[in-house]
């Protein structure tokens, strides 16, 4: 465990909690893509099946459980409790265009052709693109609430910190996982445009709105 990995995990946790609190406090999930949140719930479910097969550390187990629980709570709030506020008309990204190719790729390119390993690979690939429905929704409506941009910032920062963590681990531990690194690079690149808008607009106190 190095500082980049730890801050990456905490940044991920911050993103998840910010989103939950935003929905809970405002009693509304307006502007949030339920499809992205469903994909993240699927990501955590397929990745953390090793909770049943191996124990790594108390930290590892508790963080996994927290991520899974929070992602299901978010999906519940969007599709059940605050369904009336869900902006389904703008959440029109076709998720099958992500899930099907990612599913195929995880069968073709993986570390080991075993069920758990394929599901783990699937979750890594899917996570890298799971934010697309959310970004698509923002590009469609042309704006995002400031709190939603904080959520996206921490979510993007998390994988960027993981990239530094992997460079660190490569040099100091000889650890290198090509699948995770390539997917992590793709994931981080998807946020670059958003990072630019976040720094140039949101951090200067302006609302994130895209030119018409």
């Amino acid at each position: 465990m190095n500082i980049f990995r730890l801050t990456g995990d905490l940044s991920h946790l911050a993103a998840i909690i910010i989103l939950l609190l935003k929905i809970w406090k405002t009693r509304s999930c307006a502007g949030i893509s339920g499809k992205s949140q469903l994909l993240f719930a699927l990501v955590f479910t397929t990745r953390y099946l090793d909770l049943f097969t191996s124990f790594i550390s108390l930290y590892n187990t508790s963080m996994k459980l927290i991520y899974v629980a929070c992602s299901y709570a978010t999906v519940y709030l969007i599709y059940m409790k605050f369904k009336a506020t869900y902006d389904g008309n703008h959440d029109t990204f076709r998720v099958e265009f992500l899930v099907v190719p990612v599913g195929g790729l995880s069968f073709l390119v993986n570390h080991d052709f075993s069920p758990l390993e394929i599901l783990w690979t699937f979750s890594i690939y899917l996570e890298s693109v799971a934010i697309l429905p959310q970004l698509f929704m923002i590009s469609k409506t042309g704006e995002a609430e400031t709190i939603t941009t904080h959520y996206l910032f921490f979510l993007g920062l998390y994988r960027a910190l993981y990239l530094i963590n992997w460079i660190w681990r490569y040099y100091f531990e000889g650890f290198f996982d090509l699948i995770a690194v390539v997917a992590g690079v793709v994931q981080t690149i998807l946020y670059c445009d958003f990072f630019y808008l976040y720094v140039t607009k949101v951090l200067k106190g302006k609302k994130l709105s895209l030119p018409a």
Binding site: H12, S54, I56, N60, K64, H111, D177
Partner: peptide, 10 residues
């Protein structure tokens, strides 16, 4: 053990 290594990350 190699297969388990990446599972220490989240």
């Amino acid at each position: 053990e190699d297969q388990k290594i990446h599972k220490d990350e989240l």
